[in-house]
Nucleic acid binder design. Sequence first.
DNA 1: TACCAGGTTGACA
DNA 2: TGTCAACATGGT
Length: 279
Amino acid sequence: MVFSKKFTPEEFNPEVIMNSGQVFRMKRETKGADGMPDTYSACSGDNDIYFYLNTEKDTWDFVCDENQWDFWQRYFDFDTDYVAFNNEIRKYEDKFLKDALKDSFGMRILRQDLWEVFISYVISQNNNIPKIKKSIQILCDRYSDGIHFPKAETLAYIPETELMDGTALGYRADYIIGISKKVVAGELDIEKISKLPYEEAYSKLLEIKGIGPKVANCIMLYGFHFMESYPIDTWMKKIISEDYKDYSKNDYLDYINCSYDGFQGYVQQLQFYHKRKTK
DNA sequence: TACCAGGTTGACA
DNA sequence: TGTCAACATGGT
């Protein structure tokens, strides 16, 4: 079934979203040839969708099972007004952030499948985005149907040597197996953690081997949708030292938390995207 | 060819 | 509590 929605470019831009480092398996399937529009695809849990800009009606047309539409509206966070966030950002004299905003019109923070986010960000540690995408796709090809993400029940029983072989996962394979085993054994309930208050969820995540502060923050933001999470990776460190030279690290974080309370994670996403694009 | 990449762990001061 | 080498591996 097709569901149409009208968006300004400031409200929705899949090109920006899928290249922002928050999601590793949203794809542009066709590079619109012969007057056909670019078509994008996404998959989350057991749900699948594709979508494209309908230039005749000037709508974004989403094609998915009728009973999955609610899921996808939540996934894309369509209930949240990102233009309101942008208007808050415009109030401040922050040149880097304003440039970042212009550069990333249509950014949104997705509500992704918790399990996939968990494993994806364990894979992301000390890694680069093309290689993260590659490893994840190999997992999907080898241990699922090539489209959906492998289940914990599958990953838990793969020998470490096998999981390291040809996947480029390296030492992270051990973490993935460990986490999968805990889920299967019922010792780790990700859904339950996602419903805890911020601080409690964060410290629960840090108890898990393979998850440190950065990965925990990413899971909090991209999985649990705690919009106040502000993951700091090598790029964000670069931004703080190069583009906010006048601040000490603590002063900088105070500035972010005070000025953009409740959507720090969105601000971070704009900054991250912009910095990588203009490197 | 070195250095880097959406870092974390465990050891040691 | 803070610092630091080690960790696998492909991208740049």
